[in-house]
């Protein structure tokens, strides 16, 4: 640190900038701090990826090390092979289908519903909003069995319908979140559009929606991950292994009382982070750009 601040000290005659306010110093401080913290944050993932390259007799005997003594990439094909000829290619296809469609459904529906709650006044609005929040507070565990019987009556067992169709109403979490974002958009814009003759639908599509980019991107990132990671509901409704998701397959690898290929579990667990990570990386760009599209014209 000391070396930096002296070399960076300006030698001009004007009142010197105090060293701790100097841009270079602040930049180094920022990156030093943030990068260290980021490394700590990344440690678990580094460990997971490292362990996925450990041979079977190293996993429990060389547990703390990040790097394997003898790299063993064989874990990946072993895990990828899946079960009895149904490989992870199938599970990835199913998960990608479910997470993509599920995210599209729940995020687009949430935006529509949120606009209704946030910008339209109607009888019963407060009541429905309260009920919507209440649905978040009851653990799924006690709803599963009655729900199972409902979907059974509809003949939808062993299909994706029970997982996808409830999403046509959006998710309470995203609806509430988007409501909060809409409410921080000044109503002047709506009013201006209204004077121009736009109706509610027009206002939603042309005024509100473009401003919601950061919120919708955020919702999409979460929704994809939560859908990708979901296991209790898919476990109950998907019977055929050809329909299993990655999250289910990962839980199907091990048996506490039998033989477990931990290397394969680590390998497939590490790999299963990849799509979620890719979605995040490619979407977070829009979070940064969000500011330019939403920079208010007011």
């Amino acid at each position: 640190m000391a070396a930096v601040d002296y070399s960076a000290r300006p030698v001009v005659v004007r009142p010197p900038t105090p060293w701790h306010q100097h841009a270079v110093f602040r930049s180094i401080l920022y990156h030093g701090l943030v990068a260290t913290a980021a490394l700590i944050m990344l440690y678990p993932i580094l460990w997971l990826v490292g362990s996925s390259f450990k041979p079977p007799d190293e996993i429990w005997t060389n547990q703390t090390a990040i790097l394997p003594i003898e790299p063993y990439p064989q874990n990946y094909p072993n895990g990828w092979a899946g079960f009895g000829g149904i490989s992870f290619a199938t599970f990835y296809r199913n998960s990608l289908f479910y997470a993509t469609l599920g995210t599209l459904l729940s995020v687009s529906a949430s935006a529509v519903v949120a606009y209704g709650f946030a910008r339209v006044r109607f009888r019963g609005r407060r009541l429905w909003f309260a009920i919507m929040l209440l649905t978040l507070m009851l653990p799924t565990q006690v709803q599963i069995i009655p729900q199972y019987i409902v979907f059974k009556q509809l003949g939808w067992l062993n299909t994706f319908y029970p997982l996808l169709l409830p999403r046509i109403g959006g998710s309470a979490f995203f609806i509430f979140m988007i409501i909060q974002f809409i409410r921080s958009i000044p109503v002047d814009l709506d009013e201006a559009a209204m004077i121009d003759g736009a109706n509610k639908i027009g206002i939603f599509l042309r005024v509100i929606l473009p401003q919601l980019t950061p919120a919708i991107i955020t919702a999409a990132i979460f929704s994809f991950y939560w859908t990708w990671d979901e296991f209790l509901v898919p476990l109950i409704y998907l019977n055929s292994p050809e329909l299993y998701l990655v999250s289910l397959a990962l839980r199907t690898f091990s048996d506490p009382s039998g033989q477990t290929d931990w290397g394969a579990i680590f390998a497939m667990s590490a790999l299963s982070l990849l799509p979620v990570f890719v979605i995040f990386i490619s979407f977070q760009r829009y979070l940064v750009e969000g500011i330019s599209t939403t920079g208010l014209k007011g």
């Binding site: 362990s51 091990s254 667990s269 995040f280």
Partner: peptide, 16 residues
């Protein structure tokens, strides 16, 4: 950095 700080939140609920 953003990715790094978000990373622990996506490790999910598998046995690993």
């Amino acid at each position: 950095y953003r990715a790094a700080f978000y990373a622990p939140s996506i490790v999910g609920g598998s046995i690993a």
